[in-house]
Amino acid sequence: MSLEFLHIVMVGTKFAENVGSAARACANMGCPNLTLVRPVNWDEDRARSLATGTGQEVLRRMRIVETLEEAVQDMVAVYGATARGGGWRKGILTPAKAAPLIHEVMQQAEPVAILFGPEDRGLTNEETSICSRLVTIPTASEHTSLNVSQAVMVFLYECFVKSPGPVFRPAGPPESRLATHGERETLYVTLQSTLTDMDFLKGDNPDYWMLPVRRFLERTPLRRHEFNLIMGMCRQVQWLLGMKQK
């Protein structure tokens, strides 16, 4: 079993040792993809000491980028790890329930990312808002926050044991591929603008009112030809609204 299409993305990590431990976990579970977004006080030697010999290759392949958007641009699904719920953070899954959904995408040879925030605060509301789904690890008490490398290991383990077998690589036409995160973000910007112009979204906080729409659309893997269809509908609606204003 391999998690070759799973990408672990660590945002703003403050301790290089946690990166090293996460790299070791990736290697143990067959996940070769680790990305850091704006790591704080990055020290490769300290990371290597915790990666041991097992995780050295993962560290060698690891990407370091400046923006979260760059890290997830080509993903077709993005999951965010969080210890907090409520407010904007609704519909939270456990790793065990998220793993089969993640594998549905990976079985089509498409990339999936799991985001982990800094050790002291986790992911921000803005960072979780781009996620397809949110995931939390249940704990035995009110102390819900885990060490980030421990959290990485729990997620990887659940994905590993839920792996149904070899990846199916379809040879279908290009338009049948899943839409990337970058394409879906373009769609959401266009859709939000269109719904705001229609007075469907409230103008005082359109980002908040758009969130349920995003969550609804993220429940179903969006394919490229479906992306083109909805974008075309938005353009037609915007044209009609423009005609009425003349």
Rank of each mutant, 00 (worst) to 15 (best):
M10I: 05
T35P: 02
P39G: 10
V11C: 09
A51L: 04
N28E: 00
S21C: 07
I8N: 06
V9Y: 06
V11P: 00
N33T: 11
H7S: 12
V40F: 15
P39K: 15
D45I: 06
S49T: 11
E17P: 02
A27L: 07
S21K: 00
D45S: 10
A27P: 01
L50S: 09
C31Q: 07
A22Y: 01
E44M: 12
N28P: 00
T35V: 10
I8L: 15
A16Y: 08
R38E: 09
I8P: 00
V40R: 09
C31W: 02
H7G: 05
C26H: 07
R24I: 04
A16W: 06
A27D: 09
M29I: 05
V40Q: 15
G12Y: 05
D43G: 04
S49M: 15
R48G: 03
V11M: 06
M10K: 03
T52S: 09
V9T: 14
N33Y: 08
E17L: 00
T13V: 10
R48H: 02
H7I: 10
W42P: 14
N28F: 01
A51T: 02
F15G: 00
N41P: 08
E44L: 15
R38S: 15
R38Q: 12
W42I: 03
R38N: 14
L36E: 12
C26W: 02
T35N: 04
G20I: 08
A25P: 04
G20L: 13
K14Y: 03
I8D: 12
K14L: 05
T52A: 14
M10V: 03
R48F: 02
L50Y: 14
M29E: 04
P32G: 14
R46E: 06
P39H: 13
G12L: 03
V37M: 10
S21H: 05
T13W: 05
V40S: 10
F15V: 00
K14P: 15
V40D: 11
S21Q: 05
M29N: 04
D43N: 10
A16Q: 09
G20M: 14
V19P: 01
M29P: 03
V37E: 08
L50N: 09
C26P: 03
A47N: 07
F15R: 00
E44T: 15
V11Y: 03
D45T: 11
L36M: 14
V19T: 09
L50F: 15
R24W: 03
C31P: 01
N33I: 12
S21I: 01
W42V: 06
N18V: 05
R24S: 03
H7R: 14
N18P: 01
I8H: 05
N18F: 04
R38D: 14
A25N: 11
T35E: 04
M29D: 01
R46G: 08
D43Q: 07
W42F: 13
A51M: 05
P39L: 13
